[in-house]
Design a protein around this nucleic acid. Structure first.
Length: 825
RNA sequence: GCCGGAGUGGCGGAACUGGCAGACGCACUGGACUUAAAAUCCAGCGAUUCGAAAGACUCGUACCGGUUCGAUCCCGGUCUCCGGCACCA
């Protein structure tokens, strides 16, 4: 009686073996061909969810497969360990964030091991460890020294009841997540990174990233949002300064009928000071204060404006136009001021209609349906210039160039480019993050901490109330320090860094995780970088992936790394859903990886998650499907055990004598070829697995049908099966490998080759079509010439009967594939 | 509005470079084994029509059209759904 497939015993056994041998440790063998495989590291929230399992299962198949292909594979894992939830746990349950985080990490690390993933745990990093954030601070200082970090006042979300700053995620429907009070704004001095300096490069390099999904590249392109146009200076009547505006439509300059400033524009207060408009402007600003960013930016918001009693002069035609302020002009884009051309801009048109402002067309569409001097809506398309002085008669596209050139000649403007991308606000008024290593000296202003004094440690003796300032800001011992320049008394920055900084270079630290002298050794990162394959959720398509690219560019420019782009290839896996909906506690449809693991084993869970859908698409969890995969593994188990006596003592190699032997040899070779291609070239794990299932089906058929089983062939087939399946379900395969007499562990055993000869069959089935419709199938010798093939088809009784008495117009023959006979009548 | 995808059986999904549509799995149906059940093994499984059956015809990859001997695949148009951005001048 054969042994039952006892997955829990087998899995524990092999995980132990791998652990004891420290099998997945990766050396820096600079001579070997490397492959850096990386999955996005998790936030240690407590337990793994199915999304993690999917992410890491995909990565692990690749890691094991590539190892079998002979690569030196770097496959690390770590923890994105700073962040708000740890602090919330501290406020709610009184657990220290470091303890909470450490416990969660321990639990999740154990879960990852139970899934059999091949991580080199010697390279584990956690961003909350001082050995890690020390170098985070060091990198920040390098950015600062290069002029890429600066401080600026910016409004933050402020809850008047909790008297604290709120992160955007803590603001729900404009109210405080905790107490429900309406959230207001407060201006704070905050640190920024100058990512906008790299906007063009971040955009241009997207074209090189051919290994990225076009979707992600498009998302980043949208996010960067480059627009080309011109800036122009408009003199203001009775005012010394000129008003500079940005426009993408310099061709419409002659159509300007008013100007609009952002209400926060620095000129506004000055322009209305002491006039009758001053109180109205103040009231307008007051009203805007209570709008959230989302409300302020919503397209649905009514356009509201206010004339401020002053006028501008159009530098091209000397026309005097009124100046407005309006809620739809934003201070932080362009120059915070626009020229309004209602005839050719929808927003300006709406505004002009509402406030009864002049509309002057300057581009003629040549469309009889459009009454230029009585427009029903703005005309934004191409046309011929009119009402534009010397530029009349040109195409408006030509006018864009000519007018821009004219502005430059006259020194009243310039060609200009604007980006939607803003500088990266990195200050967080939080405790659980990397302290920003800056010091304020009354004498010397903001100065970076001395590098030899790093890390600036997070103090452990803090209290969490959820009220008032962040714990660091109320910690005198932390705050009190000396100026690195003059040694006089100074104050530390109390803000910590956005956790996105920590995750913007962790892939570099993995290359050299225990270095105490530098953030990472260049020789090592130059060997391992760039990451050959990065795998993670599409929710990180913009922020994380853009920040990491930005960091890599800066580190490259600082001479610290060779690579300029961190991730050569990117795979964004789809979500795991249940019953067509996202898994969530509130819906009660969360499937726990732990339970599934206990019920079916890690191999089954891995197999199902890889088999049920291609990696990029959504995956609907189906327990029936899981059971199917479990059945399959049992089927494999029984097959191998039944064949053990046959394999035992079987010769190496085989002679395929019977047709059944040849059929099986063919299936075996084509399966091995397909699995290799599907995994390596397409990440098409679902079809690779289905091919292996077909092989198993063929083996069952062969064993039932054949009078006597060919031992050499069977041994070869079973060996191939176990090896091909091993990246997907490593535990059961290790066990079977041992039972069929394989040496050592499967990790790193060479990927099986396949028998080319077995792929060539003596005969092949071809299709005969008449007028493109399938009418007959023929078995013919392989490699039959086109002529002979057509003859064979014509000689067939059925084909002859069907073409009887009809004109044969044309015959197409494709060797080893088909014949198509085109007939008439 | 702009940008990026996707639409194939009851379901998840296959189909190489334009060449047998629906691999593999799930669900379902029937059979074998069993005292019985579970497990397992075997077979069937897009729709329609004809036929006792073997089998045969026709239709069928969101919709309309085109290219081609031949289209799930290429081209043009339409619809629907999903994702990103959006008062960005």
């Amino acid at each position: 009686m054969q042994e039952k497939y006892n997955f829990s015993e087998i899995e524990a056994k092999w995980q132990n073996v791998w652990d004891e041998q420290n099998l997945f440790k990766t050396g820096d063998d600079f001579d070997k061909e490397k492959y850096y495989l990386l999955e996005m590291f998790p936030y240690p929230s407590g337990k793994l969810h199915m999304g993690h399992v999917r992410n890491y299962s995909i990565g692990d198949v690749l890691a094991r497969f590539l190892k079998m292909q002979g690569y030196n594979v770097l496959h690390p894992m770590g923890w994105d360990a700073f962040g708000l939830p740890a602090e919330n746990a501290a406020i709610k349950n009184g657990i220290r964030p470091d303890v909470w985080t450490r416990e969660n990490i321990a639990e999740m690390r154990e879960q990852l091991k139970q899934l059999g993933f091949t991580y080199d745990w010697d390279r584990e990093v956690a961003t909350c460890h001082p050995e890690y954030y020390r170098w985070m601070q060091w990198i920040f200082i390098q950015f600062y020294k290069k002029g890429l970090a600066y401080k600026k006042k910016n409004p933050v979300n402020w809850c008047p009841d909790c008297e604290t700053v709120l992160a955007n995620e803590q603001v729900v429907d404009g109210c405080c997540e905790r107490c429900g009070t309406k959230v207001g704004k407060r201006d704070l001095d905050q640190w920024y990174l100058k990512i906008t300096d790299y906007a063009d490069r971040l955009l241009e390099n997207l074209d090189i990233l051919e290994g990225w999904p076009s979707k992600v590249r498009a998302m980043q392109k949208n996010w960067i949002g480059k627009s080309t146009g011109a800036e122009a200076d408009f003199p203001i009547v009775d005012y010394p300064e000129k008003l500079r505006i940005f426009t993408t439509r310099p061709d419409t300059l002659y159509g300007v009928t008013y100007m609009v400033l952002a209400p926060e524009h620095p000129f506004v207060a000055d322009l209305v000071a002491g006039t009758e408009y001053e109180p109205q402007v103040a009231a307008f600003l007051e009203k805007l204060q209570y709008l959230s960013d989302i409300e302020r930016n919503a397209t649905t918001l009514d356009k509201e404006g206010l004339f401020i009693g002053r006028y501008c002069i159009n530098p091209l035609n000397g026309k005097q136009v009124p100046i407005y302020i309006a809620n739809y002009v934003l201070m932080d884009y362009g120059t915070g001021a626009i020229m309004a051309v209602p005839a050719h801009d929808e927003r300006d048109f709406d505004f002009a209609k509402k406030y009864d402002l002049e509309i002057i067309p300057v581009v003629d569409p040549h469309d009889p349906a459009i009454d230029l001097y009585n427009l029903k809506e703005a005309f934004v398309a191409e046309g011929t210039m009119i009402n534009s002085g010397a530029f009349d008669g040109m195409s408006n596209e030509e006018a864009i160039e000519k007018i821009t050139a004219f502005l430059e000649e006259q020194k009243i403007g310039t060609g200009s480019v604007n980006f939607r991308l803003r500088d990266w606000l990195i200050s967080r008024q939080r405790y659980w993050g990397t302290p920003i290593p800056m010091i304020y000296c009354p004498e010397h202003g903001w100065v970076p901490e001395k590098e030899e004094n790093l890390p600036v440690l997070l103090p452990a003796d803090v209290e969490f109330t959820g009220k008032g300032k962040s714990p660091l800001a109320e910690h005198p011992e932390f705050l009190k320090t000396v100026c690195p320049v003059c040694g006089g008394p100074a104050t530390r920055e109390a803000d910590t860094m956005d956790t996105f900084l920590d995750s913007s270079w962790y892939f570099l630290r993995y290359c050299d995780p225990r270095n105490t002298q530098e953030a990472f050794n260049k020789k090592k990162t130059d060997y391992w970088m760039a990451v050959d394959q990065y795998i993670g959720g599409v929710e990180h398509a913009i922020l994380h992936l853009m920040y990491a690219r930005f960091f890599m560019m800066v580190l490259h420019d600082l001479g610290l790394a060779e690579a300029e782009e961190p991730f050569t290839n990117l795979l964004t896996q789809g979500m795991v859903i249940k019953d067509g909906k996202k898994m969530s506690k509130s819906l009660g449809n969360v499937v726990s990886p732990e339970e599934m693991n206990q019920k079916y084993g890690a191999d089954t869970v891995r197999l199902f998650i890889l088999f049920a859908a291609p990696p990029e698409t959504e995956l609907d969890w189906s327990e029936k499907g899981v059971e199917g995969c479990f059945r399959f593994l049992n089927r494999v188990w029984r097959l191998v055990h039944e064949m053990l006596p046959v394999i035992d003592g079987a010769p190496d190699g085989y002679e395929a004598s019977t047709e059944a032997d040849k059929d099986l040899a063919y299936v075996l070779a084509s399966t091995l070829r397909k699995v290799e291609r599907d995994v390596r070239d397409k990440f098409s794990f679902n079809t690779a697995i289905s091919a292996i299932m077909e092989l198993v089906n063929a083996l069952y058929k062969y064993k039932e049908g054949a009078d006597d089983v060919n031992p050499g062939l069977m041994k070869e087939a079973i060996t191939g099966l176990v090896l091909a399946l091993s990246p997907f379900t490593p535990h059961i395969c290790e066990e079977l490998w041992q039972e069929i007499g394989g040496k050592g562990t499967l990790y790193g055993v060479a990927w099986p080759g396949y028998d080319e000869d077995a792929l060539t069959r003596d005969s092949v089935e071809i299709v005969v079509q008449i007028n493109g419709k399938l009418r007959e199938k023929l078995v013919v010798p392989t490699g039959l010439s086109q002529e002979a093939l057509i003859e064979a088809a014509k000689a067939n009784d059925r084909v002859a009967a069907l073409t009887e008495g009809k004109d044969i117009v044309k015959i197409i023959g494709v060797p080893d594939k088909l014949v198509n006979i085109v007939v008439k009548g």
